[in-house]
């Protein structure tokens, strides 16, 4: 058997295993079977085993072990590096986290957890601003048109001079203002829904609050729709894998 034939056979076996696993895992849609349980355990075992090796090989070995022990000039002629043995201190700190399982020593696990929480908390002010600052700024939109010369923004075609483009971009046209108004009303009404500190009174505030609730529901509906579409894409991909990548390609030689 030549190397190409071996490769083809390996590919066939690999994809066939994938097809069997797909069918096995989808069999739960019919009912929970032993077949499903088997493939569920295979999947979990493979994922855990693969991750363990990958974490060591791709991360710990290169980012921690190699730096810690350093290396002499070797066959690859890389220059020698000194070992950063201070990195060894990470081992006892890491083991302290596992003391959470010991009744006597579980206080130790609070040390690494405290370090992590401290690091995380220290970053939050900057992170909060980086996350929400630009969004707050982008929400302050003008709602009054600056020109009525055109209802919609004129096309900014490549043949226009920069000054002409700047003049068009500077104005707020009626349709843009309406869009901005819809955005601002949605934002403010959704905010009023979360005003729990005092009782909302009056027809306007109650109506505005109700509008906010509607807007939130419409938003949740759109989010749910997007999620459903994502799930459909997964099913379609699995069907593609079974019918096109396996059945058609393996038996009839590709699409």
């Amino acid at each position: 058997m030549n190397s190409q034939a071996t490769l083809d056979l390996f590919n066939f076996v690999k994809i066939t295993c994938g097809v069997l696993a797909t069918i096995g895992l989808y069999s739960v849609l019919y009912k929970e079977t032993k077949l499903f349980r088997f493939f569920e355990h295979v999947f979990l075992g493979l994922a855990a085993g693969y991750s363990l090796v990958a974490v060591w090989k791709d991360a710990l070995y290169t980012m921690w072990w190699q730096k810690m022990v350093g290396h002499a000039v070797d066959a690859t002629h890389q220059s020698a590096t000194a070992g950063y043995w201070i990195y060894a201190i990470l081992v006892p700190i890491g083991f302290m986290a596992y003391q959470v399982f010991s009744q006597k020593h579980n206080w130790m696990s609070r040390i690494p957890i405290g370090l992590i929480i401290g690091l995380w908390a220290g970053q939050q002010v900057q992170i909060w601003w980086q996350t929400y600052g630009p969004q707050i700024y982008a929400s302050m939109l003008p709602v009054w048109p600056t020109t009525f010369s055109s209802l919609v923004k004129p096309p900014v075609t490549p043949d226009l001079l920069p000054a002409q483009i700047a003049a068009i971009n500077k104005e707020l046209y009626l349709t843009q203002a309406v869009n901005n108004l819809i955005f601002v009303v949605t934002l403010l009404s959704a905010f009023t829904y979360f005003l729990y500190s005092f009782e909302l009174k009056g027809k306007f505030m109650l109506g505005f609050n109700k509008l906010g609730r509607w807007m939130l529901m419409i938003g949740f509906g759109a989010i749910f729709g997007s999620t459903v579409m994502a799930r459909f894409a997964l099913v379609i991909d699995r069907m593609f894998y079974i019918w096109i990548e396996w059945f058609q390609s393996m038996h009839f030689g590709g699409r």
């Binding site: 919609v152 923004k153 096309p155 900014v156 075609t157 490549p158 226009l160």
Partner: peptide, 8 residues
């Protein structure tokens, strides 16, 4: 792309 016609 309406409003961004110069971005080709």
């Amino acid at each position: 792309w309406a409003g961004h016609e110069s971005q080709v």
